[in-house]
Design a protein around this nucleic acid. Structure first.
Lengths: 207, 207
DNA sequence: GTCATCATGTAAGCCGTTACATGATTGC
DNA sequence: GCAATCATGTAACGGCTTACATGATGAC
């Protein structure tokens, strides 16, 4: 989960560890702030595996931005500026490698661990990196699980041996799952419309 | 979490370990089946702590081995009978102790770990063991957290830098939280009505 | 000059899982 | 008799958290 989230964020742009925490919450919709005690070791591990690389320790490396068109003076100025604006020294900025991109997409499409709601949401949040086909597969797989789960919950809610509180939990959980299924259905509809639009465009020769 | 669920189930009646798994799902609304690899060690630990006690290992099985009072024939018959009615041999049935009941209520009311949705749902499912006051406290505490979370999600959904998938995740998560808040509000209303009814009854001298 | 925030990292521990090992009972 | 289910337990490992340790920078 953490690996997928980190790689997913790095697909978009470079990040340093401290930043990843807030980004996971704000861009990937993961509720609880994950701890640095898990983020830093994860980054170190991903680096060892060659999936990411440290692009700059400290901000002395605006070289990465440098187009060469700027004079040394202006580059220094810009470095200073970057430090002032963007923050402090000692930051270790990571960039995803080609191998990292490959593994990321593989991981994102991997059917293995889509079981829980958290993993699924994360995958949808990163779904722009999936092919339309794989997106549909992901959504349909999850939908099947939810339909099954819904049936269990509705059965549970009908259980007369339960007290009002326990039954209320069942009923509410069922509503939540229904909401999830509706959401998936709207996403699936969108996917199919896009697919169709694309197909039509090909057929009619439009761009 | 596991301890709370196990003790909660044992508040109602005795259970053996194997049975606890299904009961946690069917009566407490916990989605994923927890594994025996966590249930059995948990029961052993609770027993060591004196919160539960093993009430019977098998039904009548020890008789077959030790007792000389019954003839071998009758002992076999009895064993057979017990097996037919109660099920299989080798079951270790647990009962909650007085100390266990005390600790359970303490645990259930403990504000420490109500953070996530799973813990909260579990507590609501067991809410009949809480006093009306503690129930309201639990609900209100959770409500405050959710309102805060909702604001964050709505802010996230407004973030225009997000692609449609990521934004969709935020919006959907927000809807889920809204549903949760509505649920809590209906529960709170019920609590207050019951409370008021009780107060009125006292005032007017009704039973 | 000191406090909050930014920034990185390590070590210990918690709470669960999967995989393994064993055996009884029921139904076909 | 054989497979499926019921039933208990152990061992290894996974993924995350908390607590600890360290230090720079910016704001007041």
């Amino acid at each position: 989960m953490l690996d997928l989230a980190i790689l997913g964020l790095l697909m978009d742009r470079d990040h340093h560890g401290y930043e990843i925490r807030t980004q996971v919450r704000d861009r990937l919709g993961v509720t609880s702030n994950l701890s640095f005690g898990s983020i830093y070791p994860a980054l170190a591990r991903l680096e060892r595996q060659g999936l990411v690389e440290a692009v700059s320790v400290t901000d002395a490396a605006p070289m990465m931005i440098s187009t060469g068109s700027l004079s040394g003076e202006r580059a220094s100025l810009r470095a200073l500026r970057a430090t002032q604006v963007l923050g402090r020294r000692g930051r270790k900025v990571y960039r995803i490698s080609d191998e990292g991109r490959r593994v990321f997409v593989e991981l994102l499409a991997d059917p293995a661990t889509v079981d829980d709601s958290r993993n699924f949401s994360l995958r949808v949040a990163l779904a722009k990196y999936l092919t339309p086909t794989l997106r549909v597969t992901l959504l349909e797989r999850r939908r099947t699980d939810l339909v099954e789960r819904l049936a269990e919950l509705l059965a549970g809610a009908r259980n007369e041996q339960l007290d009002t509180y326990a039954r209320s939990v069942m009923t509410h959980a069922a509503k939540g799952v229904e909401l999830d299924i509706e959401w998936i259905d709207t996403l699936l509809t969108t996917e199919r419309n896009n697919q169709q639009t694309f197909t039509e465009q090909v057929k009619t020769g439009k761009e």
